[in-house]
Amino acid sequence: MDNGGATNETGAAKSSDGRETEIGGDQAAGYHIPQELVAEILAKLPAKSLMRFRCVCRTWSSLIRDPFFVKLHQNQSLKKPCKTGILVSSKHQLSNTYFVFADHEGKQSFEEDTISIPKSSTVLGFANGLACIVNDKYDLSVYNLSTHESISIPLPPQKVSFQDHLSFGFDPLANEYKIVKFRVHEKEQFEIFTLGTQKVEKNK
């Protein structure tokens, strides 16, 4: 009951061993916020802050990457008024295609959150803040518009050609991102690729 861990500077100095922190992670009185509450706080932050705070310490770095946290953050973000993203591209061959964002009140400067995507790219689709992009060499990549991160998607088994039509989407039931490929003139034939797996579904 005499939980000497209360190390508040005001008055409570009477406990001589006031700096004792043996109580550890268990509801430490005084200075430390329990880990599960740190997650609750961080989940309220925008992605930009989180990318910066990965540098705080190893625990935070792995927490921010943890799938459980990502889900928690996504749920929090859905409660907020969403940002509007606009895809700006130019017909000029040499100019970049890029995204600009404004928050719901138009407060954010348009330039601030600009994300450049490679030249001559086309956006196949958006899902949960991810954009799937294909360049003129038919290389696919997925951009996370919040964290400014991207990964390239190796599409098995044969390369995509100009005759193929591609589309990107999210399956909320299976919690999977998918790319659908079909030939322009043979719409009854298509293939579905599931991201993060080797799975290819064909319809024949």
Binding site: H32, I33, V38, I41, K44, L45, R52, V56, C57, W60
Partner: peptide, 24 residues
């Protein structure tokens, strides 16, 4: 939780470490 989030949102890594009493 929201107040803490608001206070650290635009802050540096160093500020956040001292806020939470975290060692690098």
């Amino acid at each position: 939780n929201q107040a803490v989030a608001d206070r650290i949102q635009n802050r540096s890594v160093e500020y956040v470490r001292s806020f939470f009493g975290i060692d690098n």
